[in-house]
Design a protein around this nucleic acid. Structure first.
Lengths: 213, 213, 213, 213
DNA sequence: AATGAATGAGGCTTCATTCAT
DNA sequence: GATGAATGAAGCCTCATTCAT
């Protein structure tokens, strides 16, 4: 399935060279920022290499020194964004180490929800941008980091042990992430969004209660 | 937000003419089927009007008789697919009228999960195809039909009443749909997928229990 | 050897579609003519798809309906030219059927020399244009037609038989063709060119004399 | 004719500076070698200054210290190669000074044939590389050296004198060089190639015999 | 002297859409 | 009605060359 993504001469998605000089780092950052800007202002449909370079204040040629093609650029942008998100989740997990389960669940929901909501257009633009790419590796890598962090957190809970920690953890994470995204896509109002978050929390708490050994 | 999706060129998204004659219906169906085929085989990236027409066995010109532009074609395909899905959900809801809550929840999860999983590549291809379109109206319309159906179903439950039927219903639907999609995107194995569905069911049941007045 | 010609994703060199309608034939011819014109006026280095289309009075798009890429266009042009040349050689061979050997050799030299010299810029432009292409198939195909024609001609000679017709034939053809090309490349004057042709004839005659059984 | 080759941009084809220091000689040699390597591995089409510099282990900037532009580099490479070839031919001519004609002809054929065949890919790559350049001067210069050498050789023959030494010499050289190239391009097998060389020798001998006063 | 990051003109190619037949 | 040849704007990407460090 999805064979077409790879079938037609898999385009190299990894960056061409890492910026070595300070100047180059600045350039790459500018390119990332510009990509996001164009994505927000024009949509994936109108994200052209020319436009990105223009907005970044560099020449197309420069862009191509760092990214072998357009896809790689978008890919890298998403990678970066997911890494940031994973960082935040890991931080949350660390902060909740050896806390009661309820606090953990609440913190997790809160963190993820906020991360996705604080700049909704960005979230949406990124969601859209990877849609037609093989982002399996990205998701995979993100999922692994998150799973590791949350699993460890849950295992450290002071007030509970889970016979099936793994599946409970997976369920929790999948439900939370999926619900947020779906709420997002339905474009619910802030009020409803808030209520929904509350209900999600209650649902997860009820589940955890039931799942405790 | 996302204004660019509609702003740039308000493309007429509705079909040019409703097929009135039998022949026309056949043609349109062939076009839909061809679109799906190309989408599966080549991806949105390579979905061209020429290719679709070719595979549908009609000329490009003919295609343009039925769809004013490419977007409209993809849009209509998704519309059709969502309508079918809504049909199935409504059927499920009717079948569970005046049943116990647990059966309702189970049926709902089962129906949606199956619908999305029975032809995963199709699901994925469609998800991708709308990514860069303004599908708000589509989602909206789908959501309304589903909400109406599930709300009525839940209201008819023989073993429970909900003080806040609306929000409970919204939560239930959002969580189920979101979780399915997320499980989908993580590309979990069949075994895990099955376990996840089971857990989701338990979670929802626990939630409903807590939500009953 | 020459692996790079094929190695880097062999570009399809065969035409995309044969012109079916009268109009299309005209178009294709115009494109060929334009290609030659541009080749003459600007050289392979500056032969661009845009320029060719422009001079042919069609759009680039049209060009790409008949040729999958620039290389294919140049390739087809050379193919056509070699076919014409082979036609002429075959005609000469038929005309000399059952003649004395000397007349055959003279006719062959004359035909080839004239063909290459009557429009020297064209010859030169074509030579250059295929230089960096894998024209093996072209050469091969041309060589086969010529070999067949000349072999048959020589076999019909009234005043001689050859024990080793095959190698004699190959030698004759290779020497003639090679010498013409080399004379060409050295850019000798008309006078010298003429003298050279004469000498070549004498050399070949001397050779044939010695080669007769 | 072929005016475009020089007309467009009269690019300075002579090296920017002759390497005076030992280090410079090494560098230039490395660049030459790298150019040949890239030419062999990738073809003229993909011969880029960056790639050459990379393989030569110097920066592009450095390359531009020695060659004013890409053309000059390729030009110089061919120049070098032709000079080497001329050296070998001159050596052969000197070695055959005051020998019988037959030995001269045989030695000449042998030398040239071997030179072109010992590294066929190199020969081919070089042939290709100059295709779209104005190599008239190169050819001219090479021809003059060869003509002088062979003329002198033939004049010293112990067993013959030629009334028309000049044209005989030109014919001999043109036929030999042309035949070798053509045999080359037809891509004949080693066996055939060998037979061809033999026949060429016989043909030339027959010619010389006839040409003797 | 050497480096290699940056430039940007310009090449190739695609594909949605039209319209004469 | 149907066809499919023709259009051409617009996108992606390369690479010879320069120049600040």
């Amino acid at each position: 399935m999805d064979s077409h993504l790879a079938a037609r001469t898999p385009p190299p998605l990894s960056p061409r060279k890492r910026p070595r000089q300070a100047r180059a780092v600045v350039t790459v950052d500018a390119i990332f920022e510009a990509t996001l800007q164009v994505l927000l202002a024009e949509g994936m449909r109108h994200l052209t290499t020319t436009r990105v370079a223009e907005r970044a204040g560099v020449s197309v040629g420069t862009m191509y020194q760092y990214f072998p093609n357009k896809q790689a650029l978008v890919y890298a942008l998403n990678e970066r964004s997911l890494e940031t998100l994973a960082d935040r989740i890991e931080a949350t997990c660390r902060a909740c180490h050896a806390a009661p389960v309820n606090r953990m669940v609440e913190a997790l929901i809160e963190t993820y929800w906020r991360a996705k909501t604080e700049r909704p257009e960005v979230t949406r633009a990124l969601y859209r941008s990877v849609a037609e790419m093989d982002n399996t590796a990205l998701i995979e890598s993100f999922a692994q980091r998150v799973d590791a962090a949350t699993t460890e957190m849950l295992a450290s809970a002071t007030d509970a042990t889970f016979t099936d920690l793994h599946i409970v953890n997976l369920t929790l994470v999948t439900v939370i992430f999926g619900t947020v995204r779906n709420a997002f896509e339905r474009g619910v109002s802030d009020a409803v969004s808030h209520a929904l978050k509350q209900q999600l929390l209650e649902m997860c708490l009820a589940y955890m209660q039931a799942a405790m050994a």
